[in-house]
Design a protein around this nucleic acid. Structure first.
Lengths: 246, 246
DNA sequence: TAGATTGTTAATCGATTAACAATC
DNA sequence: TAGATTGTTAATCGATTAACAATC
């Protein structure tokens, strides 16, 4: 399927991490009927610098038109393809506590290429119950039902995370999103990304503390990671209620 | 309170982002009765390289003893102080959908220096209800009750996030953790960090796709961001059930 | 053609790693 | 003293920014 010209471009890790932001912005623009957009405007919508955006996109190839900009639909397609979103990914959520429960019901995955298809727990009191339209199963059942490649979302308490990760890996899982606030160890070839909510708050606390102390020196708190604080004047559509989760 | 020697050390952003990981590992070690630890062992528990750990700690000062290691209690204290965790931070969660609900009930904040004290929504059907022992209030009430410095956790749907952020900022909030999958714009001096769940999955999908294609070239997927995939042989305590969230 | 905007090259900046001298 | 381990300096690496030539 891959042609000779498909020599695998190396895409910098920092760029990969931003592609989803561009895609998100493009989809939103597309939904509003925007068909062509400049790097300047797109970068603003994505919360990055235009020069960085162009550099990032240059790693994918040349999909823009000088003097004009980028075709929103075309660029969405190309980024989707690059991210591997042309087929849907199946997700298993492991650990049905508060967080696992919320993630199971979270609507934000389906719209972005992921189907939550399995909910796993080891507590007999939870197994068999229905959450967000799915039956909670145990690992043995997951092994039977999930021969294909899946992404595991770990939402167990920390003391159970390593064991759960081991079981997932034994099933062939090679991508894990870890919400448990602990380090998990996996074999080579398995990728782990982590989201630690309290860690994020602690980083904010650090800056807030520094900020108050150093008030008079009038620093600017332009965080590296968050990025979004950087851009000014981005789209400002408002209104409506927010009873439902993001 | 600050002495002349308290010339404000600049701590690199990358270091700040890792301090919470060190603290987490130290607390866990301390709870197990470990009193002294080498940079080598601590780095493994935290999922980083020992050389990086020492470099990070050197920004805080010299709290280790050559030939011996670090005092677990002392280092915990110093990092806590550096992060501003010697007083508890108050958190307001904005948006009581699935995710906001789960975050309100999430036990992992309290143990790490944060008190969730306010739950905010604008839906009259939700305001006044009780979640995790707290009454849901509206912004007007929050304005009355929260004169002090607070951290806002945004868990609204994307279309409502900017407005909610504006209202929070108007109340004096200067630190925002944004779970809504959109860019929000804030004035200088306000810091935003973001957590986008679908984005994390898309980054994993990218690597998984690459991995399968490039199988024969036997790459190693050592992600920059996740870091935890790097260390091998870290602590492996197991067992017990995981009915509850992390 | 003139104006706009991309894609790329070069310069800067920051973060990681390696090496090792200091010192317990 | 000998062995271990920190803290720091220098080298490498990668990511960001600036500048501008290519070109629609």
């Amino acid at each position: 399927m891959s042609t000779a010209s498909a020599a695998r471009r190396e895409i910098p890790e920092a760029t990969v991490a931003r592609l989803p932001l561009y895609l998100r912005a493009l989809r939103s623009l597309g939904a509003r009927g925007v068909e062509v957009i400049s790097s300047e405007a797109l970068s603003e919508a994505a919360g990055v610098r235009s020069t960085g955006l162009r550099k990032d996109l240059s790693h994918l190839g040349s999909y823009g038109v000088r003097g004009v900009g980028y075709d929103v639909g075309r660029l969405s397609e190309e980024i989707s393809r690059e991210l591997g979103l042309h087929h849907d990914w199946s997700v298993a959520i492991i650990g049905m506590g508060n967080l696992g429960h919320a993630l199971a019901a979270y609507g934000g995955f389906a719209t972005r290429g992921f189907s939550v298809r399995w909910l796993v727990d080891e507590d007999p009191a939870v197994i068999g119950t229905e959450i967000a339209g799915l039956q909670v199963i145990d690992f043995a059942d997951l092994a039977k039902q999930a021969p294909e490649s899946i992404i595991a979302v770990l939402a167990t308490p920390p003391h159970a995370a390593q064991q759960a990760a081991d079981q997932a890996v034994a099933l062939g899982v090679r991508s894990i999103l870890n919400f448990a606030p602990c380090v998990i160890t996996v074999p080579d070839g398995v990728e782990v990304r982590k989201v630690d909510l309290a860690t994020e708050l602690q980083i904010l606390a650090f800056h807030e503390q520094r900020g108050r102390d150093g008030e008079l020196s009038s620093r600017h708190f332009v965080s590296k990671d968050s990025g979004s604080a950087r851009s000014i004047g981005a789209t400002k559509e408002r209104r409506t209620s927010w009873g439902e989760a993001p």
